[in-house]
Amino acid sequence: MKTIKAERVIETVEDLCIKANCSLNSDIIEAISEAIKNEESPAGREALKQIKTNSEIAFFEQMPMCQDTGMTVVFAEIGQDIRIIGGDLGDAINEGVRRGYLKGYLRKSVVDDPILRTNTGDNTPAVIHYEIVAGENLKLTVAPKGFGSENMSAIKMLKPSDGLAGIKEFVVETVDKAGSNPCPPVIVGVGIGGTMEKAALIAKKALLRPIDIRNGKRHIRELEELLLKMINGLGIGPAGIGGSNTALAVNIEVYPTHIAGLPVAVNISCHATRHAEAFL
C-alpha cells in the first residue's frame, strides 16, 4: 500500500491555489483570442482584449487574474490503495488552502456562518469532494469559484416529458437571466441526470473539462454545440454590453437517472474558469 504524507498534500494544495488563480489555462486563452477575431461588437472586442491582457499581467506578475479568488472547491480522487499518514486528509487540504491564500496574496472571501457572516480570515473551509477510485494515485484538483457567476447558477427537476426541449429552454433561460452579472463570456457547465445533488456535482465537474474537448457521446456533443449557438444568439456579449460572444463553451456531463426524473443543473462560470491539478 502506497503512503502519502499529509505534509505533501498541504504543500501541493498551497501551490495549486496560487497556480489556479494566477494562470488562466491555455484552452481558455485560445478561445478568447478566437473570440477577439469574430466578435461583432467593437466594444465587445475591446472588452475581450482587456480580458486577454489581464491574463497576461496576472501570469507574468503572479497576481490573481480576478480579485474574487473564490471559494476554494477541491476534488480529491483517492486511489483505494493509498494511505495518508501524518494527519487527516481534510485538515491537510484546508491547511493548504490557508497557506496558499496567505502566500499568494489571494482574497479571503469565506464567512463562517451563512447567516452571521464573519469572515474566517483564511478562505477556509474549502468545499471538498472526495471520490474513491481504483489504483494508488491521489489526484487533487483545486478549482476556486467566484460568486459573480456562482450566484447565477440554477437547478431544476424537469419531468421526463420535458425532454430535450425542456433542457434547452432551461439552460438558455438561465444564461439569459444571468445577463451581464457572471462576467461574460462565460463557460456553462451543465449536469443532466442522477439525483438533485448528483446533477449539481457533475455540472461543476463539467467546468473542469478543457473547453476545446467536447463530450464523447454524439448526442451530447451535438447538444453542447447547439446550446452554445443559442446562447451566443442572446446578444449579451462580452461584459454584458452587447455582442456575439456570450459563452466560450457549453460543457455537459450526464449520469443515469430515475424513470420519473430529469434533473438539470446549470453551473455558470466566468471567463476566469480556474482549475489546477496534481497527482501524488
Binding site: 480580458i51 489581464n54 491574463s55 497576481m63 474574487d68 459573480g148 451581464s180 461584459a239 454584458g240 466566468c270
Partner: peptide
Amino acid sequence: FCAVGGTGALLAK
C-alpha cells in the same frame, strides 16, 4: 460606469 468584470489585475495597474 461599467468596467470589464474579471480584469482585476489590469485595473489594479
